[in-house]
Design a binder for these strands. Sequence first.
DNA 1: TCCCTATCTCGATGGATGTCAAGTTAGACG
DNA 2: CGTCTAACTTGACATCCATCGAGATAGGGA
Lengths: 125, 125
Amino acid sequence: MPKHDVLIVSRDEAEPCASAVMREPLTVDQAADLAKVFKAIGEPVRLRLLSLIASHAGGEACVCDLTDAFELSGPTISHHLKVLREAGVIEGDRRGTWIYYRVKPDTLRLLSESLAPAQDVAVTA
Amino acid sequence: MPKHDVLIVSRDEAEPCASAVMREPLTVDQAADLAKVFKAIGEPVRLRLLSLIASHAGGEACVCDLTDAFELSGPTISHHLKVLREAGVIEGDRRGTWIYYRVKPDTLRLLSESLAPAQDVAVTA
DNA sequence: TCCCTATCTCGATGGATGTCAAGTTAGACG
DNA sequence: CGTCTAACTTGACATCCATCGAGATAGGGA
């Protein structure tokens, strides 16, 4: 049984507040915003890209690392990265020759909490 | 500041174990399975349907309740419900004249945990 | 300067998908 | 049985989207 240092994150501290998908009906606008992000990660290649970036050493990966992991052309990888970028899931910056991408953790936390059951959420540190 | 009764849910108790999107690279198969569910909820109408069902009194809603909430034809609503059903997000059963849909909480919990940061997760009861 | 590599943008194309009209199935009620 | 309502299925259509080749842009090094 692992040990746990528990950090309470109550809903009213969350910033910005996650849409409570499970607790009350989403407005049309909330649904459109949230769906855009879910659609971005609702594609196998993009989900693998996200996972590769998130789990890469140092928390970031350059495009060449990612391209090598797929049997897809450069433009296709570039397209998927752009979709993830425009959905606010990842961000990238050029450092010299290479462009490095990393996850935007706030967006992921927002998604995760929006699907959590209708109750407060605590995350162990 | 709200009070919290904390129930620890450690990763090795989770059944089935959530894919650790944020902690290690997904396999091709894991990504395909997960992406199918995210794609299902990555559509505004379907996300609103899910939210309506989840937040409806009694935890379930009949199709007529749902159809009235949209300016869309019956077949279109039926199509979206089918996509959600085949993704394992909701389930429905007929009781007399009406068919009632409800959320499958395990699937939602799986999604939520798969996007959570690379650490254990605790949910307040 | 010129060239090489890394990455992105553009345009085209085939396949996936949201939507609806028409028709079908399932149950309730005489 | 016949009819009414709830929900689904089918088929068609328009739009969206994943993919690639060709070309553009950015930076490093000779």
